[in-house]
Nucleic acid binder design. Structure first.
Length: 325
DNA sequence: AAACGGATCAACCGCACTCGA
DNA sequence: GTCGAGTGCGGTTGATCCGTT
């Protein structure tokens, strides 16, 4: 036995809404509200439309404060992050983007954002071996991809040679999954500063080696928590003896063909160290859409690679009620 | 200028869920 | 506990737009 139809299909209009219909619906809801009954609303409002059609038209187009037009980078990032964690729960994602509707976001994802990610996957695949670029950041920015947060409390306390730069300095380098690093190079990473624990405050440390200026020239962090190797050296550091390459134990040299201007990043001087034996918060940030090829493929094809977002789906669900007043 | 194809997005469809009788 | 009406939501469709040939 099939479900009873919600309305008399033969006597309802379908297709695009006319301005007159919009005006009738808007006027009725503004004066009387929905009355908690969409099925009865079209008749009361003098519309030959299905109640569901009225509801959709109101929610997606007529209700106040609807935002149309281009999505911002911030909105892109939120959509990507949430999609990573909860999949195609468009209504929940919409609850985090004021003025956006689930339909809008769904269309945007299907027509643009997914394509954007696929193009990035192609690009990432071309620059083999792939590695993440670390981008300029601000003191308040934060690593956007939860799965790649560097965790640092371990080497804060254990490595007295670590300190941040003052003032901020530009570095060239990147990160790479350990699984992608040739074994002979991986063997040489034993001298890397190691971190293996989770921490809410990501910090990047640099080792002081090779140069006698007292300022940092290179950094090398073995992030066992995320299976990442973070490596590079100071972009402005011209080392005639090639020590800039030696200092990163060949990693920058190995991945060097893919390191370009865009992969320089700035270590901010926030919370700077007046005591060089103490590490401070040199946070780094990656471009929010610069996922590895594996992550992009997962973003495109699956809906669950996130397991350490700061809030649960249940918490998000309570927020989604805000969307539909 | 016309034809074509891809992109976009509003709207529809149908399933699942909620809630009250 | 069951049933059915109403609602919410995600997937899909199709009309329209726009750029290219």
């Amino acid at each position: 036995m099939g479900r009873a139809p919600c309305c008399d299909k033969a006597n309802v209009k379908k297709g695009p809404w006319s301005p007159e219909e919009d005006a009738k619906l808007k006027n009725y809801i503004e004066n009387h509200g929905t009355g908690g009954n969409w099925i009865a609303l079209p008749q009361k409002a003098g519309l030959k439309r299905c109640g569901k059609s009225c509801r959709l038209r109101w929610l997606n187009y007529l209700r106040p404060n609807i935002k149309h037009g281009e999505f911002s980078d911030d909105e892109d990032r939120i959509i990507c992050s949430l999609f990573t964690c909860i999949g195609s729960r468009w209504s929940i994602i919409a609850a985090h983007l004021p003025g956006r509707t689930d339909n809008d976001i769904k269309n945007y994802w299907n027509t643009k954002l997914k394509k954007k990610l696929m193009e990035m996957a192609t690009f990432a695949h071309q620059r083999r071996p792939h590695h993440g670029a670390i981008y300029p950041t601000t003191a308040n920015s934060f690593l956007q991809n939860p799965s790649l947060q560097p965790q640092t409390s371990a080497y804060h306390s254990t490595n007295n040679n670590c300190y941040t730069t003052t003032p901020a300095r530009v570095f060239t380098g990147g990160y790479e999954y350990m699984s992608n690093i040739p074994s002979n190079l991986l063997e040489n990473t034993s001298s890397f500063t190691t971190c293996s624990t989770n921490s809410s405050t990501p910090t990047v440390f640099q080792t002081q080696e090779g140069h006698g200026t007292g300022l940092v020239q290179n950094y090398q962090v073995k992030d066992n928590y995320n299976n990442l190797l973070i490596f590079g050296n100071e972009a402005s550091c011209s080392s005639s003896d090639g020590s800039g390459v030696d200092e990163d134990l060949g990693l920058l040299s190995y991945f060097g063909s893919g390191v370009d201007e865009n992969q320089k990043f700035t270590l901010p001087a926030n919370g700077y160290a007046d005591d060089q034996n103490k590490a401070t918060n040199g946070r780094f940030n990656e471009n929010p859409l610069d996922y590895s090829i594996e992550e992009i493929n997962q973003l495109i094809s699956t809906n669950n690679i996130c397991n350490n977002l700061n809030y649960s789906v249940d918490e998000i669900k309570t927020e989604e009620q805000v969307l539909y007043y």
